[in-house]
Structure formats: structure tokens, C-alpha cells
């Protein structure tokens, strides 16, 4: 099984979790896969039995036209399965939605076709909020080892083990801010502020891609997020505010 922070050749399934959100998604995925396997097993067993012994079997009888019990069973069973899947799903959904006590707020603005990051809690020496833009690295500027279509010139730098709130919006058309390793995907809509929060549990680099079709260069506006220690973060901030 391939678990990744970045997309990789032949990768399937979800990327490694770096936040409680994504851990919850992994758990829900496994949970639902259990019921999926159950249903797949049952349905294929019945199909094979009916096809193989089409005259004498437990499930099909040529003279059967109506069965009250059968109808009840095949209505209640799927309903029960759906119910069992929906409870953990809703619990996770509402937990992910919660923004409780963020220690830091970052404003993220989607534009055609780049992102703008604003550290709204901090100002530089001239009293303006810290903000910068982040563009994709074009193919002719890539340095050996860079990931094509994922690396950017600047990245969002955030401290580890800190509750961070993202306020997401857009300036022209709809975009979507998504970081799979953190289990985040939230629409960036012009004229609207959406908020989501995360708590990164390990340092590293996480990539994401715009997830709302926003024009010709929709594929060319990735986001790169670097999670660093608190000291490194403070150094980064002070360099930024020079």
C-alpha cells in the first residue's frame, strides 16, 4: 500500500495523515470499506449461487412472485447498512467543521491562477500585514529534484502542533483550497469567507492542488505547505517582516 505526502507514480488510496482530520478520514474509509466488503461478499455469493444452481437454490424460485418477508428484508438491510455508515460519517463531518481555539490565522486568497497568503496576525515594520503570492514553478525554472506541477516559488510556512485557522476566499472566480495530507478541501468563493482549521502533527512538506475548475490554468496553481518547528516559524516571520 502506498501512503504519501505527495502524489507518486501508481499511488492509490489516501495520502499519509498529518492532522487529526485526515486520520479521521482514514478511519472512516476503513470503516466504510468493511461494510462494502460485506455487501460485495453477500451479493456475489447470491449471484453465483443463483447462476450456478438456477433450479434448486435458497434464493430464487421460478414460481415466486411476491414475498412480504423478502421485501422487508431487502428494504431493511440496505437501510441498516446506510445508517451504520452515516453515523460515523456525520460525526466526522461536524468534527472537521469545528474551529475551536485557533492560535494563528492565515488568510488564503485564490486568484487566476495563483494563491495569495496573508498572515493576518502579524504586521511588518511599516505596519502592513504580512502577505505574499505563490506561483507554480514553470518547467524551465525547475531545479533538479523539484516536483513538476507541484512545486511553487513560495510556500505557506506554518508551525507544527499549533492550531491554525485558514480563512479562504477568492478574488475572481471560484477556486478550492485542498491539502490531502491534512484532510482539507474548502471552496474559495469570491465575496465569501470560508473557514477551516487544522493541527499539523509532524513537520514536513505537503502539497495540494486547486480543486475547483477555475479556467485554463486550473492545473497550474498548486499549493505547497511547509510545516516547521515553532522556532523556525518565528525566524521565517521575522525575515518576512524585514
Amino acid at each position: 500500500m502506498t501512503w504519501l505526502d505527495v502524489p507518486a507514480p501508481w499511488a492509490m488510496r489516501l495520502q499519509d495523515a498529518a492532522s487529526p482530520n485526515q486520520e479521521g478520514i482514514h478511519e472512516l474509509y476503513d470503516h466504510i470499506m468493511f461494510y462494502l466488503a460485506l455487501v460485495l461478499g453477500l451479493v456475489s455469493y447470491m449471484t453465483i449461487v443463483i447462476v450456478k444452481d438456477f433450479t434448486k437454490n435458497k434464493f430464487a424460485h421460478k414460481q415466486l412472485r411476491h414475498g412480504q418477508t423478502l421485501e422487508i428484508i431487502w428494504t431493511m438491510f440496505p437501510a441498516l447498512i446506510l445508517l451504520l455508515m452515516s453515523f460515523p460519517s456525520f460525526i466526522l463531518l461536524y468534527l472537521s467543521d469545528e474551529v475551536l481555539t485557533p492560535a494563528l490565522t492565515v488568510k488564503i486568497v485564490g486568484l487566476q491562477w495563483y494563491w495569495k497568503y496573508e498572515y493576518s496576525d502579524f504586521v511588518n515594520k511599516t505596519g502592513e500585514t504580512l502577505e505574499y503570492e505563490s506561483y507554480i514553478m514553470p518547467d524551465d525554472m525547475l531545479e533538479e529534484g523539484n516536483t513538476r506541477l507541484l512545486d511553487t516559488d513560495t510556500s505557506i510556512v506554518l508551525p507544527v502542533d499549533t492550531h491554525v485557522r485558514f480563512i479562504v476566499t477568492a478574488n475572481d472566480v471560484m477556486h478550492s483550497f485542498a491539502v490531502p495530507s491534512l484532510g482539507i478541501k474548502i471552496d474559495a468563493t469570491p465575496g465569501r469567507l470560508n473557514q477551516v482549521s487544522t493541527l499539523m502533527e509532524r513537520t514536513g512538506v505537503f502539497y495540494g492542488q486547486c480543486s475547483e475548475l477555475c479556467g485554463v490554468n486550473h492545473a497550474l496553481m498548486p499549493m505547497k505547505m511547509q510545516c516547521v518547528t515553532m522556532e523556525d516559524f518565528l525566524t521565517y516571520l521575522s525575515e518576512l517582516s524585514e
Partner: peptide, 8 residues
Amino acid sequence: SQNANPFT
């Protein structure tokens, strides 16, 4: 060096 996929 950036801890990508530290587990596997």
C-alpha cells in the same frame, strides 16, 4: 529530507 511519508 522533508519527512515525506515517514512511516513506510
